[in-house]
Design a binder for these strands. Structure first.
Length: 349
DNA sequence: TCTGGGGTCCTAGGACCC
DNA sequence: TCTGGGGTCCTAGGACCC
């Protein structure tokens, strides 16, 4: 499917909305502009919960996604705390994605509420990036950053250099110069645990990882993961943006309780309620569940899961609930519980 | 720092079958 | 009788991402 010889080159643009949830809240509460805004949980910093998004003024106080709300309130007492309003964010996100799809010649692959890859053929990707920024701002009032790359990995990483509201390009030509000396943690797909595991093997920088032996890492870190990490170190990744609609593999609901649960009857009741919510979701999806899983987080924070393949795939709420309770009863009782979760798994697409 | 909620994919061991 | 090898499914856990 290569184009004519003089066709414009293919580029991957990674479009990422800046401080998305906080920006959306400021849009509908204009008096909050310029103030530290923290979105997360029920919007009550005395309750259990973490920050889903913080505005830049809040980030200056060390508040970021994942910070416990209580901690955020200590670090930034002047912050405005708001509950997460997911349905609204979904709606705004849809409008943004529609704007991206209106980009001439664009293939759009949505990655989440606030980001998407856009594949385009052009001689001037920066111009396309600026046009997208202008269209998104004009259509929604939101700012975004655009990373430009010769594959998805590099475009995604480029975005980090363009924040906020900028455009940045990262390609094979500049990879080593820009990324070579950085820690492996800077790569998309390498988290704290993997970075530590790599460091134990003497691989601390992106350059070192890229020069590592894939076979050796396969033996130590997994047959697929090991070689993939080396590819990451080299900046190699998928080049084609896919517009194929995403097909979900599972549905889940979970709750952290404000006070720990001791009573097993109550734990069963709560599990049954979660199972019914999941059953509603799978009914809405119109796909039978093949498997049910129950997750229990015990005090202080030990998390365990149990699951079973259903004798018959089902969308029936009563059967699903009964199966969830059956799985729950396989846990050891007697320890206090802070979180319960129920998940349904679908057939592989 | 006292740690949400919703997802995806990979790994490894055991069961089971031929 | 004491011993193969491959394939697939099931299950639990880990790691990562938004």
């Amino acid at each position: 499917m290569s184009g004519p010889p003089d066709a414009d080159p293919a580029w991957v643009l990674h479009v990422d909305l800046d401080q998305f949830l906080a920006a959306v809240e400021v849009l509908r509460h204009p008096e909050l502009a310029g103030r530290p805004v923290v979105v997360g949980g029920r919007g009550d910093p005395t309750q259990r919960g973490v920050v889903a998004a913080a505005s830049y003024p809040a980030r200056e106080h060390g508040v970021r996604a994942g910070t416990p709300l209580r901690t955020a309130a200590k670090r930034c007492p002047d912050a405005v705390f708001l509950p997460a309003d997911n349905p609204h964010y979904e709606e705004v996100s849809e409008r943004v994605m529609a704007i991206l799809r209106d980009t001439p010649g664009a293939v759009v692959e949505v990655m989440g509420w606030d980001e998407a890859f856009v594949g385009v053929r052009t001689a001037d990707p920066e111009a396309t990036a600026r046009a997208i920024q202008a269209a998104v701002l004009d259509g929604t009032g939101l700012h975004c950053t655009v990373g430009i790359g010769d594959n998805l990995l590099r475009a995604k990483i480029a975005t980090g250099f363009g924040k906020p509201a900028g455009v940045h390009r990262l390609t094979a030509d500049t990879w080593d110069e820009v990324m070579g000396d950085r820690p492996t943690r800077a790569l998309w797909g390498i988290g704290a645990k993997t970075a530590a595991a790599l460091a134990e093997r003497g691989l601390t920088t992106v350059r070192e990882l890229g020069a590592a032996d894939p076979e050796a890492l396969a033996a130590e870190l997994g047959p697929m993961l090991g070689p993939w990490y080396v590819q990451l170190g080299r900046g190699i990744g998928r080049r084609e943006v896919s517009a194929t609609p995403w097909v979900r593999r599972s549905r889940s609901r979970e709750t952290t309780f404000q006070t720990d649960l001791d009573d097993w009857d109550r734990i069963r009741t709560e599990t049954a309620a979660l199972a019914r919510r999941v059953a509603d979701d799978i009914t809405a999806d119109g796909r039978p569940a093949l498997r049910v899983a129950v997750k229990v987080r015990f005090v202080p924070f030990t998390t365990r899961s149990r699951s079973k393949t259903l004798p018959t795939p089902t969308t029936d709420a009563t059967a699903f609930e009964a199966a969830a309770l059956e799985v729950l009863d396989r846990f050891r009782r007697g320890r206090a519980v802070r979180l319960l979760g129920v998940r349904a798994e679908y057939e592989k697409p």
